[in-house]
Write a protein that binds this DNA or RNA. Sequence first.
DNA 1: ACACGTTGTGTACACGTGTACATAATATAG
DNA 2: CTATATTATGTACACGTGTACACAACGTGT
Lengths: 350, 350
Amino acid sequence: MYKNQRNLMSEKVSSRKQQVRAEDVARHAGVSRVSVSRTFTPGASVSAATRAKVLKSAEILGYRVNRLASSLNRSESGIVALIAAEIDTPHRSAMIAELSDKLQAAGKVTMLINTSGYEERVKDALLQAISFRTEAAIILSGAPDPSLADTCFSNGMKLVLINREEDFPGSLQIGPDNRAAGKTALKALLRAGCKRIALANSANATWSILERQKGFVDAAEEAGVEVLSEVGGLTSYQAGLELGTALLDREDRPDGIFCTTDLIACGVIDAARQRFGLRTPDDLSVIGFDDIAQAEWEGYDLTTFAQPTDQIIEKCLEWCTTERPDTETVKLPAKFVWRNSVQKARIPLK
Amino acid sequence: MYKNQRNLMSEKVSSRKQQVRAEDVARHAGVSRVSVSRTFTPGASVSAATRAKVLKSAEILGYRVNRLASSLNRSESGIVALIAAEIDTPHRSAMIAELSDKLQAAGKVTMLINTSGYEERVKDALLQAISFRTEAAIILSGAPDPSLADTCFSNGMKLVLINREEDFPGSLQIGPDNRAAGKTALKALLRAGCKRIALANSANATWSILERQKGFVDAAEEAGVEVLSEVGGLTSYQAGLELGTALLDREDRPDGIFCTTDLIACGVIDAARQRFGLRTPDDLSVIGFDDIAQAEWEGYDLTTFAQPTDQIIEKCLEWCTTERPDTETVKLPAKFVWRNSVQKARIPLK
DNA sequence: ACACGTTGTGTACACGTGTACATAATATAG
DNA sequence: CTATATTATGTACACGTGTACACAACGTGT
């Protein structure tokens, strides 16, 4: 009996935070605690009368079901971990915005884990996700140590790697078809009549960015075209500035540049305009990747590839709600977005 | 006794997710369950021998303390809710990146709640935060219904409003001194020698943005200067384009524009350059607010105000870890960042 | 040798909830 | 009106953990 009215002694001494419990609501409404629980459990059997009483008392007392406690019991936390680095980057933040929005619409709650900085944080992030019995972990940054996969699965956690393809059994690996996009980029530059074709890439590129590069270079080799490669810096606007400057400073100045990222592309365009007085598309054709908001800005008007974000997210959600799925790798076509940073000849590419 | 080895019958029938519990580790290590708990509780008293045994068994079994369960007991979830709209916006995403990073460093976990869309979602977001017994809620979007404050506090939740000043008792309201910044912006334009001064603002501005406008307009009135006001669109780059076009199309074309947001400023600069062939700072002086990454891009080189992000976050964290603080309103000076979008006369302003 | 502080472990209970089972209340059919 | 099917409520237990308390083991000092 004394269990129901809280230990008064410890209440005096410790500063234990007061919470409104189902018990309190039950007493206030003059019903049993289970009735309160049932009122807030969809599909449970409660009479309309008690339900009304409970709802009213809950309203008055400011009661909300403690989902930590309920998760404990039902072993479904409703939490999904979003593990990402550099979340203030345009493309990344757009992805996170979409993901969190859709997760929420699906009744899930997103736990954001920032892993910028040293790479070890990805491991810590996963461990943290496990601690909170996250239903799934969606990883947007570098992949973690594969040895952790077992721990994840033994706790019933789903795993999704976006834009990474690594040996991580039991996970969904999803992203755009980067190679195909690189190939398309080369074709587009060729059809635009570019004679000296270049590639601008970051020095610490991720796997998916390297794939774009590979697709571009392979296609060039196939077509018997030489590619001037400039690689350096981070995957950032500043790197684009430097890469652009280096490329445009050459004797054999390129007239068509594929940048593995929109940020780099913006840097290249600015280098051309501000430092060399060159304009796109008249003097220089530039193609990017990601279709960030700035690509649409009038100062850039960048031809680029849009990541199939909607489809990626849709598949993610499906994966997270499916029971014990097998390993799966999904490549979705990136949509080529024609704007005005590539010389005339807007011949549609199939 | 049977309690210790899980209900086998229900295990067959239901698909209850298997979790590794402290109990399992204890059995594996040949110690009691409490010893396991003590091993993972800093400051608890365990012998080095048992501790070692426990750690080894935990490693083998892939055990992680269930923080949902431990939160339940200690009534400290370690979770902080981040409630924000338009999180793919440059300034917002930068803020979220910093906040999540610092929260993590402080041992907290961030729960991201996206409230883009209809305004009602802020209320739902808060209710969700309460459900998860969040230790604090940091609100970056429109403020919620004040009636919810009580429910928050009765569940021991701290409340922080960033960049909003509303009647929300018991909360920390923090942000830059927008009025002072608006005033500084006007002074800067005057010292730059601008003769026809204008203001570009969004039509659905937030409270803090309106404060900037007010500071600017008030200062102008004080100085006896007329201000051409153009208001419209959302708080976005596209709005900036339109506002800039409208302003520069006038007979009495302005030569100095204060934009309440960097995004708007970028739009204005692009309108000037792409649509009117005007350059900053020679033909036009532009000042923004936020100091987003793009403000530093060479194509804009925007003079603007940097939000005191670090100090805001520091104060936030302090607030969240303090016991039952009183209402507090904090205004921090925004740092004026001189770049090259304002005509010569770089006279330092005190 | 004894009394005594120190340290490690075990027992019992608490945190707030969901649910299987039993039972009481009510509606339905004959 | 009784027998039965339906529905609503109460009881008991489980989820996985932290901690106050009691107690055993262990030195340590006179």
